[in-house]
Design a protein around this nucleic acid. Structure first.
Lengths: 235, 235
DNA sequence: CGGACTATTGAGACTCCTCAACTAACGTGG
DNA sequence: CCACGTTAGTTGAGGAGTCTCAATAGTCCG
C-alpha cells in the first residue's frame, strides 16, 4: 500500500452540538490512523471519471487534495452538478449498493479509497468514528440545502454571486478577496441550473459594474464588497 | 413521562450498503427502546412552530405521526421550504448549537423529542445506533439532492409533476394512483421555488389535459400514467 | 502556427413573476 | 340555520428575465 501524506485523512465539518464554531477537523489522530489503515491511496488526473452513476458502489472516498464534481445526467441530455467536493470532503455513499451520482475529477486529485464493507464494519465497532461521520454527512446535508437555495433563485446575477461567495468561503486559501474559480463555466452553469451563456453574462455584468475584477478567467477579485453582498442577499 | 405508542421511534431510510433494497426500518427493537428512554413524547396542533431559525438547538426530533415543514425566510420576505418531513423522519440537527431552519407542523403531529446533548452522548457509546443515524442522514441528503434537481427545472409543469410523484412515493398509503397533497398551495410553491399562481396553473393544466383528476383540493388521481411520467422525466 | 475547445456577445421566443380581480371554502357568531 | 368575514385558491394581462440559436473572440495544446 502506498504511503499516506501528512497525518492521514480528515473530515472538515461544523458539528451540530453547542460550544463549537466554524470549520473543525473532526478526527482525532487515532481515528485518522484507523481510516488510513483501511484506506488505499489513489491519484487521478483532471477530468477522470472516478465512478459512474448506477454502477456498483464498492468504495467510499475522502479527498486528500484536489477538486471533484458529483453530477447526474438527465434524460434530456442536460447535466446537473450536484456538488463540488474539496479536500476533507467525503463522497461515494450510494443507495442500496449503487452510486446515485457520477463523480469526476476537475483538478489532479488525491483520494483515500475505502471499501464500503470495510468502512461499515469499522464504523459499527467505533462509536466515536461513526459519530464523526454522522457530523460530516450532516454538514454535507447543510451544503446541499444551501445549493437548493441558490438554485431556487430566478436571477442569474444573484445565483452567480452566491456561487462566488460559496467558493470564497470554501477555499481556505482565498486571501484579500481573491476567489479562485477552479471549474469551467459549463460546470458552474450545470451546478447553478443556468446556461453557460447566462453565467458568462452575469460575470460580465458584475465586472462592468465594478463589483468584481477578473485576473485571468479562473480568478476574480471582489472590488465592491458592499454591493457584492447586497446582490447575494437580495433574494 | 408520557407513554410511547407502538414499539418506539423508527428511522425510515435506504442504507447505502449492498444487499438491501427499498425502504427499511433501520432500528432494532433494542435501539427503539434506547431512543424511547431518552426521548419525551410531545404533540402539536397544525400550524404550530416547533422551533425558530437561529434559536438555540436544544432538541432533536423524530416524527411518530404527522407532517412537518422545514423552512427558511429570506431577506426579501420570500420563504423557502427546504423539506417536508413525514413519519420516521428526523429533524433538528443544527449547526454550532443553532437551528439553521425553522420547523412548523402542517398536520397534527406527534414527536419524539431528545436533548442534543443526551442524544450525542448516547450515539458516542453505541456504534450501531450511530451508524443507523448515519444511514438516516445520508438518506435525507439524497432527498435534498432530489429536491435540488426538481427546483433546478425551469418549467412549472415539470416541477409540479415531479412534486406529485415525490408525494406519491413518500406516502405509504397511496393506493390506486391516488395522491394526497397534505400541504397548502403556498407551501408547495415555496418548496418548488414557484409562485402559488404558477403551481395553481400547472395543476389546472394537468387536469385539463386529462393527466390528473382532482378529488377535492387535497387529493389527486393520476389518470394517464404514461404522460405523467413523461412530463416528470422530460427535464 | 493551426485546430479544437472554451468563452463571450447578440437577437428573438418563451415562460414565469407581479399585480389584480374574482371565486370558493371555511369558521364564527348572531 | 344562515350571513358574514377571512383565508385559500383560481384565472387573466403585462413586464422582466432566461433559454435557444447563432456568430464571434479568446485560449490551450499539439
Amino acid at each position: 500500500m502506498a504511503e499516506f501524506v501528512g497525518s492521514g485523512p480528515s473530515l472538515r465539518a461544523i458539528p451540530f452540538g453547542p460550544g463549537m464554531r466554524d470549520a473543525v477537523e473532526l478526527l482525532s489522530s487515532r481515528q485518522r490512523l484507523q481510516i488510513a489503515s483501511i484506506a488505499t491511496f489513489v491519484q487521478f488526473p483532471p477530468g477522470k471519471l472516478v465512478y459512474r452513476e448506477g454502477s456498483n458502489a464498492q468504495f467510499v472516498f475522502i479527498i486528500a487534495k484536489g477538486i471533484v464534481k458529483s453530477f447526474r445526467d438527465l434524460p434530456s441530455g442536460k447535466r446537473r452538478v450536484m456538488a463540488f467536493l474539496f479536500a476533507d470532503d467525503m463522497f461515494g455513499l450510494g443507495q442500496s449498493g449503487h452510486y446515485v451520482n457520477s463523480a469526476q475529477t476537475i483538478t489532479p486529485v488525491t483520494l483515500y479509497r475505502m471499501r464500503v464493507t470495510t468502512l461499515t464494519e469499522t464504523l459499527r465497532h467505533d462509536a466515536d468514528l461513526a459519530f464523526q461521520f454522522l457530523c460530516k454527512v450532516t454538514h454535507e446535508l447543510r451544503g446541499s440545502l444551501r445549493h437548493t437555495v441558490i438554485v431556487a433563485r430566478r436571477d442569474a446575477l444573484g445565483r452567480v454571486t452566491m456561487f462566488l461567495r460559496l467558493l470564497e468561503q470554501n477555499s481556505h486559501l482565498s486571501q484579500d478577496s481573491k476567489i479562485v474559480v477552479p471549474m469551467s463555466r459549463v460546470d458552474a452553469a450545470n451546478y447553478l441550473g443556468l446556461s453557460l451563456e447566462a453565467v458568462s453574462r452575469a460575470l460580465s455584468r458584475l465586472e462592468r459594474s465594478g463589483i468584481i475584477a477578473f485576473e485571468g478567467r479562473r480568478s476574480v477579485r471582489v472590488l465592491d464588497r458592499i454591493r457584492f453582498e447586497r446582490i447575494a442577499a437580495a433574494l
